[in-house]
């Protein structure tokens, strides 16, 4: 019997750690895949928004955001993606575990769907991170416009993307559809090359 099944990243074979692109001056961008994350969509049930928020406050100490921003709860980030809709991301509740955890705690208040296998999450950081993203993302990431806990659902180079700011390095994390990992990676490598980039192990 074939067991256990290996978990394979959508970027398998593409993200080889090392330095790439132009090698002039300061390193422009650092790129790392974030593997093993729990990812799930959470959608409030009809008329249960307030109860859901109270449950989330109690369980994770978080105020579920009604805007396109990230709210950090205990061990889980909640990113507002629409009215009554969130993308939950967690390191602690890895892979399929997060959806199970949330479905258990939010039973009857929200519908939860596991997306941990369907997304590739990439962290892009460094002084030129915004310049790289500007080559695809039609959203202004300038700190005067985009808050440090900002998030966005948009497209990059014709590919759907969910993006949130991770810190003020600046660092951004991008969730892309797994099936588009290869196309996205080719866009990213081509766009980051002129600034010089380093691929770090996930």
């Amino acid at each position: 019997m074939s067991r256990p099944l290996a978990s394979v990243s959508g970027l398998a074979g593409l993200t080889v750690p090392g330095s790439y692109g132009a090698k002039v001056g300061e390193l422009g961008v650092t790129i790392a895949e974030r593997t093993g994350l729990g990812i799930a969509t959470v959608a409030a049930c009809k008329g249960k928004s307030e109860a859901l928020k109270a449950a989330a406050r109690k369980a994770y100490g978080v105020e579920l955001p009604e805007r396109s921003i990230v709210a950090s709860g205990r061990d889980i980030l909640f990113i507002g993606t629409g009215p009554g809709q969130w993308l939950a991301v967690s390191e602690k509740y890895a892979n399929e575990e997060l959806a199970r955890e949330l479905a258990g705690r939010l039973q009857g208040l929200a519908s939860v769907a596991d997306q941990s296998g369907g997304r590739t999450v990439i962290r892009i950081s460094g002084p030129r991170a915004r310049d790289v993203l500007a080559k695809g993302l039609p959203i202004d990431l300038d700190p005067r416009v985009f808050p440090s806990n900002g998030a966005a659902t948009s497209t990059i180079s014709l590919m759907g993307v969910q993006l949130w700011q991770a810190d003020d390095t600046p660092a951004y994390e991008l969730a892309i559809f797994r099936s588009l990992s290869g196309s996205f990676w080719r866009w990213l490598a081509a766009s980051a090359a002129e600034f010089g980039y380093e691929v770090k192990p996930g």
């Binding site: 074939s2 099944l5 290996a6 394979v8 596991d114 941990s116 296998g117 797994r178």
Partner: peptide, 17 residues
């Protein structure tokens, strides 16, 4: 159906079994 991260391993397992 399995979570997509197991998709590559599952097709290999199906072929093997």
């Amino acid at each position: 159906g399995v979570p997509a991260r197991y998709g590559d391993a599952l097709i290999r397992a199906i072929m093997m079994e």
